[in-house]
Amino acid sequence: MKMTDEQLIALIEGEPNEELEAQLASDSNLKKRYDELKEVVEAMSTSGDVEVPFHVQAGVLSAIEKEKNKVSGNQSWLQIAAAVALLIIGFGAGKFSGTDSSNELMALKDEVQSLKEVTLTSTLQRYSASERIMAVNQIEEKGTVNKQLVSTLISTLNSDESPNVRYAALQALQKFINNEDVRAELVKSLEAQNDPLIQISMITILVEAEERSVIAPLKDIIEKEETTPEVKQQAEIAIQVLT
């Protein structure tokens, strides 16, 4: 009896067909067709998955934060902006009052700068997750940071309750990866992280920076039972690249 490809596929999919199975044992042409179809079906079912790119993950996480912010309707970031604006207005008023020496101008600029940094730091410590992300982004936009802000970012990365804020802090720290202290802090922080997205991002950043001191913590991560398979895989790849 002539067997169709559809019948062969049904058998591959697990539908029992004794007659077809018996024919397969004796008909080499039929067996060849069966093997070819099986190869294609197996290739599909064992096909590997591509990892979601980080910028997609970050985009979604940031959209979630925006939505949360909308829901909570919190306005305190605006209050901070208003405080900075008041200081700038005060500075402008002082300028028009007559004492316009360049030293005073520099001093006032420093004051504004330092107020901004204190505001960012305090935002990271007190306000909602969305506002903390905005503060982290502000630090990132500054381009250069002082030790205090780096240490605030590290402490945010290690202890913030929101994974989205921790992720934003990591992205901000990536800008300063050429700094040896930042790399050392990231290696230390990796061991304390348990969110797969942050673990994978951190491993990628440290591998790109060719930071070999991360190999030992990576081995520990692979050993840990609670580490997800994706993170283990990323850690194994990282070790291969760095050794």
Partner: peptide, 21 residues
Amino acid sequence: LDYLNELFSRYSKRIYNYFLK
């Protein structure tokens, strides 16, 4: 909305590969 993060980590890879392939 915090649980959206969990939904994302559970389904993002499958969805991404569905779109990609």
